[in-house]
Design a protein around this nucleic acid. Structure first.
Lengths: 166, 166
DNA sequence: TTGAAATAGCACCCTGAGGGTACTATATTC
DNA sequence: GAATATAGTACCCTCAGGGTGCTATTTCAA
């Protein structure tokens, strides 16, 4: 369905929670109770984030989690990758030479190249969104900030405006 | 995993195949054999595409499929939607007032708004890629063209502007 | 030193979507 | 009427998503 999993949802919520309180450590329980998430699952997610250094964890009493980087350094693609694994728009997109082919028509596939280009553009898209963008609108309730993006700006029209990638 | 399903892969292959031969009808068997796809599954996919008017079908002997629109009118988002259903970056993204909430923290969810903005941008991204972009690079092997459509252009705007490093 | 609080690491389970098959009905051509 | 092709269903199997539970480890504080 081309959708994120719920784990990523939880990750985003937890990260926003931490971003809003940069000067203290937050426990999994606190975050779970505050936002009504299942605590055990949230802990799994926080573990993943910790292993990817997106959050720092402190064990023991008075322990908890805090952001491991600044909110402008944590990209959406890093979050997704930490929780769900690498984004694969199509299975063959991240295929390396010599790998066991995930798809048995690799050699003759007529759409492989163009689809890989789309993959790169999607990665760039996700890498361009950072936690600060999300957290910002979370605290202030204004609707405005993200919405430069807000008007979806139909990209269909022109061939050839600027491109960010490649 | 934020990935397309194999059905969409098949749809893209079939559509590219048809785009390359605009003046004749192609049978499911022909496409399946040509590209090594399972015929029965490909037929399912073609049925979906037909119901969404992305392809025209002709029944009976000498029947088959052909594109239902020009290759510049068939967007990637339309293809995905025809085969997989609506793109939902997150479950709640397409939620309408009064629906049964797909997520029981709808009301208090701190990231709902920003995430919906991302969803809109993703939709615009996918709507900006058309079949012609794929089919083009299929026949000619040049690598350049696709960069025109969906320019990723991070939605940050207010906050830092980050360039996708690729 | 001991207990409580917190994360770390497994192991396991259940459900549903992805992915695939099979069969029948219908339309068209020759 | 036979052959060819799509249309429509109904069904099945596998595996990732999503969730639970238990144990180990670390840290603080009484």
């Amino acid at each position: 369905m081309l959708s994120l999993t719920r784990k990523t949802d939880y990750a985003l919520i937890a990260l926003c929670h931490m971003a809003a309180q940069p000067n203290r450590v937050c426990t999994a329980r606190e975050i779970a109770e505050r936002h009504g998430l299942p605590q055990s699952l949230l802990m799994n997610v926080l573990k993943s984030l910790s292993q990817s250094d997106l959050v720092e964890s402190t064990r023991g009493a008075k322990g908890g989690y805090r952001l491991g980087k600044g909110p402008t350094e944590i990209t959406l693609s890093a979050i997704i990758e930490a929780v769900e694994g690498p984004v694969k728009f199509v299975q063959c997109a991240t295929h390396k030479e010599g790998d066991d082919p995930s798809c048995d028509i690799m050699e003759t596939c007529p759409i492989r190249r163009p689809v890989q280009v789309i993959q790169h553009r999607l990665e760039a898209f996700l890498a361009g969104i950072v936690l600060a963008d999300l957290a910002e609108r979370t605290s202030s309730d204004s609707c405005v900030n993200l919405s430069i993006s807000g008007n979806p700006q139909p990209p269909t029209g022109g061939t050839g405006q600027h491109q960010a990638a490649n």
